[in-house]
Amino acid sequence: MNNIVTVNNLTVKFSNRKSAFSKKVTKTVLDDVCFEVREGEILGLVGESGSGKSTIAKAILKLVPYEGEIHHESDNPQMIFQDPYSALNPAKKVGWLFEEALYLKGEKDSLVRKAKALEMIQMVGLSEEYLERFPRELSGGQRQRVCIGLALMQNPKFLIADEAVSALDVTIQAQILELLKELHDKMGLSILFISHDLKVVYNLCQRVMILKSGKIVESGEVKEVYTNPQHEYTKQLLSSVF
């Protein structure tokens, strides 16, 4: 199986001055992280708050400066954000947002764009009329569906879902996860699924990585890690849930 993303020795440091005259304080957020995302898999990334989960996502998308090597097979990785309320432009209709994604990809024919937007809104389980709505007229679950559709609009091979369901209530969570799974099977996506929820990761992912204070302490097949944890931290995490 090919790797869609390969990360070698990824280190991210943030430096900050407390005031203009004090010394720079450097904080290492990610320390020598190595992993790969295989083609067509859902890789879970689990860790507590502040462990650097989102920083990994940002580094892969080149939103933060980093040291080390990140190799992409896919040219346009996309991301689903945690907060569906700020991930959709409040001034634009859903249909416009979908079409904009295609326009930015170079699709100049507005009829083709409209047809594809219609196809996508149905694929994420909403009806045609939602294309004419503003994001404020949608519920949280509907927004997250739109976000997923928007992320898939440019037909990416690799998707990062950063706490994609954490802001939703449990029943909607299940629906969105189902949708994500379905789209994964249908489009052959590779997904890096970032979460702090071990149960969700167990249901969705094939492999899992456990992150603690910027280091990957354990990784492997989900079943293996969950039934036979090696690292002390993993054991703690699992005992707190199951």
Binding site: F81, L104, M153, Q154
Partner: peptide
């Protein structure tokens, strides 16, 4: 710093756009 701006950037929108 809103996510929708990040999303637009990921999709390849120019700064002016």
């Amino acid at each position: 710093n809103m996510d929708y701006v990040r999303m637009a950037r990921l999709m390849g929108a120019s700064n002016i756009r």
